[in-house]
Structures are given as C-alpha cells and as structure tokens.
Design a protein around this nucleic acid. Structure first.
Length: 759
DNA sequence: CGGGGGACTTAGAAAAACTGCT
DNA sequence: AGCAGTTTTTCTAAGTCCCCCG
C-alpha cells in the first residue's frame, strides 16, 4: 500500500481538472476533419517516419524498420494464445488447469476465501466436486434455514441454504394472478420479511456454465402505436396533410422532441428525414421533400397536453396505473434461475424512437425501429416453460445456452449491435462477477509495485513498441484512463481512450506553472465527456512522448504501435486476469480507502463523517473523470440552502440571547424553575447549533459536488466492502451511504465485510 | 493477426417517485 | 393538496474484453 501513496498524491488533487466545459460536442468539430483515412494514414506514417523512430534504437533498427519485422515482434506475445488460464471458467483440460485455479480468489474454482473464516475449511470442496456444477436444481433441499448468523456461519457454510422465499421452479405454473402485489397495495409497506438468499455463501460454477435452470416470461413489448386523434393536424408547406399511420408514427417521434436542441442540428434532421421518408407511402414521399416545410407544432402541443393531463389525473387513476405496472413487474420482472427467483433488470423492450447518441454522433436522428417478436431470441433452459410470443407471432429463435447470462436478445438497427435482457445487479449472477472484479483488483494491489517498476524499466526499452506500451500503461495507472479500443470511423462520435489517443490530444510543456515536464491532456472520452488535465510526468516519459510525436500530424495516433489487444496481452502476462480496466478499479478503490483513512476524524458527528465519506468518494470521481452537467436547479437550490442557513443563524442568536437572559434570571432568582429554564435553553442552543452545522456541511458537500457525479464510482469502482467496513468502524448506519437499491446490489459486501476489512 | 461478432460492464440523462413544506 | 426540490429508478448508449474465423 505504501507504493500507492506515490501515485495517490498526484491522483487526488486535480482541483484544476474539472472545468466547466462539461461536454464538448463541438469543440473538436473542426479538427474532426477526415480521420476517414486515418487508419491508412497511420500505416503510411509508420513507414514514412520510420527513420526518426529508429534513431534512438540503433541496434533495433532492423527490427523496427519494416512492418514485417515489427509484426514478428508482436507475434511473440501472440504465442500466449494459451490464455486458457484466463479462461478459468471455461471448460478446461483437467490437468494443467488445476494448479492455475488454485490462485483464483472469487474465481469460481478454489474454495472461496470468503470470510477467511478458519472454520469454513471443512466446507472446502473435496476435489471431486470440483468440476461438477454445483447448484443443481434440487428443488427441495430446503431443510436449512440460514438464520442471521453472522460470525459463526461455519455451519451455514457447509450446507447450501435455500431461501424459503425462493420459489420452487417446478411448480410455479401459470399463476397469472399475482394480485398479492395489488392486494397489500400500500406502497413500500409490503412485507419483505423473508430471509434473503446468501448466494455468496454457496459454491460457484467452475466452468463456463452460468446456470442450470432458467425460466422466464419473455420480454414486455412496447405498446402499439396509437394514431393521433383526427383534430391533431400535420401541415406540409402550410397545408394540412393526413399521414399514413406508419409515417405519422415516425413524425410523432420528431414532434415529441421539438423543444430539444438537437432537432435543430443538421445531422439530426438529415438522418431523421432520410429514415422518415423510408416509412412514407409513395404519395407522401413525393409530396414531402423538405423537412423545413413540415409543421409538427400541433402534434407537439398535443403531446404536451397529454403529459399535462397525465399529471392532473386523480389519485385513483394514478393508483390504478401503478397497480397495473406492479402486475406487469410481478409477471415479467422476475425469472427463476437455479431455484431462486431473481429480478430482471430491463424486461421491457426498448420502444421505437429517434436515436440520439451522445456527443457529436453521426447517426443522431436515425429511426430506431420497433422490435417485434420475430426479432427476439429467447434463451432459457430446455426443461423450462418456454415463454409464449404474443398471439399470432413467433420468436425468431429459442435457444438453450447456459454459457451466457441473458434471457432475451435482439439486434438493434442503428449500429447493428445486440441488445440483451439480463438480470438485476442484486442477482447472484451479477453479484458474483462484481465480487470477482474486486478480488482481481486486490490481486493487482499485491503486485502493482512490481508492475510499476517494470514499466518504468520499459521506458528505456530499445523497442518502440515496448516504450509505447510502457508509457500508455503509466497513463492508465496514474491517470486512470480507459484502455481506448479503436472505433469504426463514422459509426460513432469521435472519442478516445489511452491507446487511441492522438497527437492532437496532448500538449507537451517542458515547463508550465512552475513545474517541469508537464503534459496537458484534452480529449473527449467515453460519452463524449471531456477529459482535461495538466499533469507533471517523469522526464523519461516526457522524452518518450516527444519521440512518439515526432514527425506526426495532429490526427495521427500517439501510440501508433499499440492497441488494447497488445496491451492486454502484456498485462495478462504480468498477472493472471489483469487487463487495463483493472487499474481503474484498483486505483479507485485504493484511493477511497486511503482517503477515508485520511479524512475521517474520529470524534466528528455523523453528518461530518458522511461529508468525509463523500469527499473521499469525490476524490475517486475526479480521478475517474465522472462528470455531470450541473443540475439545472443548482444555483437556486444553493440559494435556498443558504437562506435556510441564514435563518438558522438568526434562530441561533435568538436562542443564545434567550439563554443569556435565562441565566441572568436564574442568577437573580435562584429557584428551581429558572434553573430548569436555563437547562432547556441550553439544550435548544445546542440543538440549533447542530442543525446549523448540518446545513453548512450539506452546503459544502453540494457545492463541491456541482459537476461531479458520485454514482458511477460508487456503483462500479469502489469495493463496497471498504465502505461497509468504514460504516461499521465509525458507527455510521450503512443506509446513510447506500440507498435501498445499492444495499441490494451490495448485499454480499454488507453481509461479509467486518470493520477491519482491508482492500 | 486483424476484423468482426458477442457478451457483459460502465455511463450520464431523463423520468418517476418521494419528501417536506406552505 | 399542490408544489418545488431532491433522490431514486429507468433507460439505453458507449465502453471493455474475449473469442472466433478466415
């Protein structure tokens, strides 16, 4: 952990980093000039500049010189094709695999080190289970009731428990009833008393198998299109025009978005119009030739009125809708996987609409078409009840693939990618993976010093490729950059990650703001969020960057001999399971842990502790560049808070004044009653002071959080056990840190982390 | 070995739900 | 009760990484 400090210092700060240019849709627009042929350019560049590249690597010349050689070089690592080891859960050849798997922490093979409990040993599997898939769907080994046993769960460990509440997959049958949801109608009041299934105390599948039994009801489709009432007109070129249902539907998509800025964007309009015309009848097509002559305002008004009306609905009506939703949730929102009822994340098929990518997306405005049953692939187990397609339709395919976790998939028409319906984060299948992710990051912690030393050595390598790899890895480690896969030109917004950085994305300053060897980063990352940062780097890195940039055009790749696949292959050799993103997880979690240590003051009250927690969380969010648009109501809400604070201050001075006079009074009168009065005034002052403090803390927290999004890191990067341990250590209720959903997702951590957990 | 497909994680915005007033 | 403000949930785009194929 000591080794981390070095890094952490630089990682934390970054006050300068978040700037107000939240998302730069346009910023790079001009330079976005034809990267079209960028890829080819790159090749060209390589040969063109090959000389310069070599000058430093004299004896390597022949090696680097021509691409052929170059390729050989890379093929070295290629031989490690036997990433079998990585594939721990894959079907393995029994022999060599065994030793490998030993190392696996939550790795689905070795006895889970879970609570590191001494007594859990006897529960370690005897080798024989080993390849057997545990978790048969023995419908009834219910016997055992996992009670709350926290510490002495030795016993629980040995047997697999089965939650009483979980259903018996077999018998569940067609109870479409489910009115129970509606029955005890009173919102959250429902009973939820059942014991939760502790999947983390069970054995895991060791081979690629993800489940043995899977049954579900299939997806919920988007409601069919309801044509507009006759009085809502569309006008073309000033004249009213009745559209065919098909064309009208697409028109409504546009009409609904009318007050969005992007309906004014050229690309959006162009893409929309093109796709809209495809939906028109030949007549419509011949008439409607110019989007600018289309008038959607009546439609737009109509939808506004609709949503207004919806808000005005009576309580009863709203309640009814709510109940209907609950019914659908009960019917379609759950599946049975291996004896347990699990929540599905997104059981509704995405409705049709106009695609809006993030940032400057070349496909914005295109029509996202309606998904029909014929587009849907169902995945479930052979012995389950296969979901029925809506009457008169069929599924595209029903398959039974238990090597994947999805229940439903379809191909989306904008990018041609596959979309899935999968389980909720609270499910076993997601939770195990999440847990495993943090275990991998903790393994990195054990060898990160070695890896850092190695890449520092590699900065001096004679091979260009290795130097590039080493510098890129340094950025990934120090700055928590994403790997940066290459993307297809023209298919998506122009964003980059580490390996895909271009020369134009960094500036070198031999000296800046009084510091030497500064690198200024400015690029659009995932979701077109701008990354802007000025960092001092080591001299060697700086020199290398100069070298990499020599004789290149701004639009050339900075690391022209590197890509994520090369990098990850290398990482895989350094540590089993290591990939670029593990560094983000590791650095995020270790930063949280270290910041919590640093910021928590033992005798502070709970609100102050929570502020410290949020600050630690914030340090991570800044490191990972998790930004958000400042809430529209931010200024106002800040003002409100401030006036609350002012009011509270007034109240406080009033209370103090009263206390004073009560004291004086007591001094004079010296009776019991006045003494009591003093006491109560004192209490009041104290109470108000506390309230004031709370408000002030809140204000600070909010201000500091203006454009920082904490959620992403909390949900995806911070080992929840660190937070849970911190809560336990300082007596902060875990609900203060995690809301209900989050507690469900992190149930495993809440259950297993003690106050002394160390990442 | 490079390109593409596939599966799964990570991401911020928007919608919906909730809360605490007045 | 209606709201304004805040928090939670939903939504789905956009990444990562692996595998397979030719």
């Amino acid at each position: 952990m000591s080794g981390d400090q070095v890094h952490n210092d630089s990682q934390i700060d970054t006050g300068s980093r978040v700037n107000d240019s939240h998302r730069h849709r346009d910023k790079h627009k001009d330079k976005e000039h034809k990267h079209k042929d960028h890829k080819k350019d790159k090749e060209r560049e390589k040969s063109k500049h090959s000389n310069s590249e070599h000058k430093d690597f004299s004896e390597k010349k022949h090696r680097d010189k021509d691409k052929l050689k170059h390729k050989d070089g890379s093929s070295e690592k290629h031989k490690h094709k036997d990433k079998e080891k990585r594939k721990e859960f894959k079907v393995k050849s029994p022999s060599q695999e065994d030793k490998v798997k030993k190392e696996k922490e939550n790795g689905f093979s070795s006895p889970p080190r879970i609570k590191a409990e001494p007594d859990s040993d006897d529960y370690c599997f005897s080798p024989k289970h080993e390849k057997s898939l545990k978790r048969e769907r023995d419908d009834d080994d219910t016997e055992f009731k996992p009670k709350k046993i926290k510490t002495e769960d030795e016993k629980k460990a040995k047997k697999r428990k089965q939650e009483d509440e979980d259903i018996k997959p077999k018998k569940k049958t067609k109870d479409k009833d489910k009115k129970e949801g509606a029955a005890d109608g009173k919102k959250k009041g429902k009973k939820e008393p059942e014991e939760k299934w502790k999947w983390w105390e069970e054995e895991r599948y060791t081979d690629g198998v993800k489940w043995k039994f899977l049954e579900h009801k299939g997806p919920v489709f988007a409601p069919p299109y309801e044509p507009l009432p006759g009085n809502v007109k569309f006008y073309y070129d000033g004249k009213t025009m009745k559209l065919s249902s098909q064309a009208e539907e697409v028109a409504t998509f546009f009409a609904k978005m009318l007050d969005h800025e992007y309906t004014t964007k050229d690309i959006f309009r162009k893409n929309f119009f093109k796709d809209w015309r495809k939906e028109m009848t030949p007549e419509e097509k011949s008439i409607i030739t110019d989007l600018n002559k289309c008038n959607f305002t009546e439609m737009h008004e109509y939808f506004k009125a609709q949503s207004e009306a919806k808000k005005q609905m009576t309580k009863e009506e709203k309640q009814q809708i709510k109940e209907e939703n609950e019914r659908i949730l009960q019917e379609y929102g759950y599946c049975v996987m291996d004896n347990h009822k699990e929540r599905i994340a997104n059981f509704r098929i995405e409705p049709p609409g106009l695609f809006r990518g993030r940032g400057d997306h070349p496909k914005m405005g295109m029509l996202k078409r309606r998904i029909r049953p014929e587009d849907i692939i169902i995945n479930c187990s052979k012995d389950s009840k296969v979901p029925k397609p809506p009457p008169g339709t069929k599924w595209k395919e029903v398959r039974h693939d238990n090597k994947v976790t999805w229940l439903v998939s379809w191909t989306e028409n904008i990018q041609g990618s596959i979309k899935y319906i999968m389980l909720n984060p609270s499910s076993r299948i997601k939770g195990e993976k999440d847990w495993q992710k943090y275990e991998t990051a903790r393994r990195l912690k054990k060898c990160v010093d070695r890896i850092r030393n190695q890449y520092r050595e590699d900065w001096k390598s004679k091979e260009m490729k290795i130097r590039q790899r080493a510098v890129a890895l340094y950025f990934i480690d120090k700055l928590a950059l994403r790997a940066g896969n290459e993307k297809e030109e023209g298919e998506t917004a122009d964003t980059v990650g580490c390996c895909s950085l271009r020369v134009e994305h960094i500036k070198l300053h031999p000296e800046l703001d009084g510091q030497e060897f500064m690198v200024e980063f400015d690029f659009l990352g995932k979701d077109s969020i701008r990354y802007y940062n000025k960092v001092p780097v080591e001299k060697r890195v700086f020199k290398n960057l100069q070298l990499f940039m020599e004789n290149k055009q701004p639009e050339d790749d900075l690391f022209d001999r590197l890509n994520t696949s090369i990098l990850n292959k290398h990482l895989q050799e350094l540590m089993d399971g290591l990939t670029a993103k593990v560094f983000r997880t590791y650095n995020a979690s270790i930063t949280l842990q270290q910041q919590l240590k640093e910021l928590t003051t033992p005798d502070e009250n709970i609100p102050a502790k929570i502020l410290s927690y949020n600050r630690a969380n914030r340090a991570v969010a800044i490191l990972c560049n998790h930004q958000r648009a400042p809430p529209k109501t931010f200024e106002k809400s800040m003002q409100n808070l401030q006036s609350k604070i002012d009011a509270k201050k007034d109240q406080l001075s009033d209370a103090r004044r009263e206390l004073k006079s009560a004291k004086a009074d007591a001094k004079v009168r010296r009776d019991e009653k006045s003494k009591k009065a003093v006491e109560s005034k004192k209490k009041a002052v104290q109470r108000i002071e506390e309230q004031l403090m709370k408000l002030e803390v809140q204000a600070t927290d909010r201000e500091e959080n203006k454009q920082i999004a904490l959620g992403t890191s909390k949900l995806n990067y911070l080992d929840p056990r660190i937070s849970v341990a911190w809560c336990k250590k300082w007596g902060v209720p875990v609900e203060k840190i995690y809301n209900k959903t989050q507690r469900e997702k992190f149930a495993w951590a809440i259950d297993m982390a003690d106050d002394d957990f160390e990442f």
